[in-house]
Amino acid sequence: TGEEYIAVGDFTAQQVGDLTFKKGEILLVIEKKPDGWWIAKDAKGNEGLVPRTYLEPYS
C-alpha cells in the first residue's frame, strides 16, 4: 500500500530507474526517501523514482 499523489507537472526520466509521468497523473508513493526522490508506481504498474517537488497529495 501507499499514498496517492497527483503530478503537478510533466517529468521525463533523466536516468535508468526514474519514472516518466504527465501532469494530472495519479501516482502511488511507496517509499519517501530523504533525498527528495520518492519511489512511486503509476496506473500501469510501472515503478520508479520521482521528484517529490512534482507531486501533491491527492484526496
Rank of each mutant, 00 (worst) to 15 (best):
T1K: 15
T1Y: 13
T1G: 15
T1P: 15
T1W: 09
G2R: 13
G2T: 14
G2H: 14
G2Y: 10
G2W: 08
G2E: 10
G2M: 13
G2P: 11
G2Q: 12
G2V: 11
G2N: 13
E3H: 10
E3N: 11
E3A: 10
E3P: 08
E3R: 11
E3I: 14
E3K: 13
E3Q: 13
E3F: 09
E3T: 13
E4R: 07
E4C: 05
E4K: 15
E4A: 12
E4N: 12
Y5A: 02
Y5Q: 02
Y5R: 02
Y5W: 14
Y5I: 01
Y5G: 01
Y5H: 06
Y5N: 02
I6P: 01
I6G: 02
I6C: 04
I6D: 01
I6N: 02
A7D: 00
A7R: 00
A7P: 01
A7H: 00
A7G: 04
V8P: 01
V8R: 10
V8S: 08
V8N: 14
V8H: 06
V8F: 04
V8E: 03
V8M: 13
V8C: 05
G9P: 00
G9C: 05
G9E: 14
G9L: 11
G9K: 14
G9D: 13
G9Q: 15
D10G: 07
D10Y: 05
F11D: 01
F11N: 03
F11L: 05
F11S: 02
F11V: 07
T12E: 12
T12V: 11
T12W: 11
T12K: 09
T12P: 08
T12M: 11
T12Y: 11
A13P: 07
A13Y: 03
A13E: 05
A13G: 12
A13H: 04
A13V: 03
A13W: 05
A13L: 04
A13S: 12
Q14C: 06
Q14L: 12
Q14E: 10
Q15T: 15
Q15K: 15
Q15Y: 08
Q15A: 10
Q15V: 09
Q15W: 07
Q15D: 15
V16M: 08
V16G: 12
V16F: 11
V16D: 15
V16A: 15
V16C: 06
V16R: 13
V16L: 14
V16W: 15
V16H: 10
V16S: 09
G17A: 06
G17Q: 07
G17M: 06
G17H: 07
G17T: 13
G17R: 06
D18F: 15
D18E: 13
D18C: 06
D18I: 15
D18M: 10
D18P: 04
D18Q: 13
D18W: 15
D18S: 14
D18V: 09
L19E: 00
L19H: 02
L19W: 02
L19I: 06
L19F: 03
L19T: 01
T20P: 15
T20W: 04
T20H: 07
T20S: 14
F21Q: 00
F21M: 06
F21W: 02
F21G: 02
F21T: 03
F21E: 00
F21P: 00
F21I: 14
K22N: 09
K22S: 12
K22R: 14
K22H: 11
K23Q: 09
K23V: 12
K23E: 11
K23P: 03
K23R: 14
K23M: 10
K23F: 08
K23C: 05
G24E: 03
G24T: 03
G24F: 06
G24M: 03
G24Q: 03
E25A: 12
E25P: 00
E25Y: 05
E25I: 03
E25M: 08
I26V: 13
I26H: 07
I26Q: 03
I26P: 03
I26Y: 05
I26T: 06
I26E: 02
L27G: 00
L27M: 08
L27V: 07
L27S: 00
L27R: 00
L27E: 00
L27T: 00
L28N: 10
L28P: 00
L28S: 08
L28Y: 12
V29P: 01
V29N: 00
V29F: 02
V29Q: 00
V29R: 01
V29M: 02
V29I: 15
V29A: 02
V29W: 01
V29D: 00
I30A: 03
I30C: 04
I30W: 05
I30S: 07
I30G: 03
I30N: 03
E31F: 09
E31D: 13
E31H: 11
E31A: 11
K32V: 07
K32H: 06
K33W: 08
K33F: 15
K33I: 07
K33D: 09
K33E: 04
K33N: 14
K33R: 10
P34R: 08
P34N: 14
P34W: 12
P34F: 12
P34C: 07
P34G: 13
D35P: 02
D35E: 08
D35R: 03
D35N: 14
D35S: 11
D35G: 11
D35A: 06
D35Y: 06
G36R: 03
G36C: 05
G36Y: 06
G36E: 07
G36H: 06
G36P: 04
G36L: 07
W37T: 15
W37E: 05
W37I: 10
W37R: 13
W37Q: 10
W38Q: 00
W38C: 03
W38S: 01
W38H: 02
W38A: 02
W38D: 02
I39M: 09
I39T: 09
I39P: 02
I39Q: 07
I39G: 03
A40Y: 01
A40E: 00
A40G: 05
A40Q: 00
A40S: 03
A40P: 00
A40C: 05
A40N: 00
K41Y: 07
K41R: 13
K41M: 10
K41C: 05
K41G: 03
D42C: 02
D42A: 03
D42P: 02
D42Y: 01
D42T: 05
A43K: 14
A43I: 13
A43D: 15
A43E: 12
A43W: 09
A43G: 11
K44S: 13
K44D: 15
K44Q: 14
K44Y: 08
K44F: 14
K44A: 14
K44P: 03
K44R: 10
G45A: 04
G45H: 06
G45P: 00
G45F: 04
N46V: 12
N46K: 09
N46T: 12
N46Q: 10
N46Y: 09
N46R: 08
E47H: 14
E47Y: 10
E47I: 15
E47A: 11
E47P: 05
E47D: 06
E47G: 07
G48W: 03
G48A: 02
G48K: 01
G48P: 00
G48C: 02
G48F: 03
L49P: 04
L49T: 15
L49Y: 07
L49A: 10
L49C: 05
V50T: 03
V50Y: 01
V50H: 00
V50R: 00
V50I: 06
V50K: 00
V50G: 01
V50N: 00
V50F: 01
V50E: 00
V50D: 00
P51Y: 15
P51M: 08
P51W: 08
P51K: 09
P51A: 08
P51R: 08
R52P: 12
R52I: 11
R52C: 06
R52Q: 10
R52D: 11
R52V: 12
T53Q: 14
T53F: 06
T53P: 09
T53H: 13
T53K: 11
Y54N: 07
Y54C: 08
Y54D: 05
Y54H: 15
Y54M: 13
Y54A: 09
L55R: 00
L55I: 10
L55E: 00
L55D: 00
L55H: 01
L55P: 00
L55G: 00
E56K: 13
E56D: 08
E56Y: 09
P57W: 07
P57Y: 11
P57S: 09
P57T: 07
P57I: 14
P57H: 08
Y58I: 12
Y58T: 09
Y58R: 15
Y58P: 04
Y58V: 10
Y58K: 13
Y58C: 05
Y58N: 08
S59Y: 11
S59K: 15
S59G: 11
S59W: 09
S59A: 12
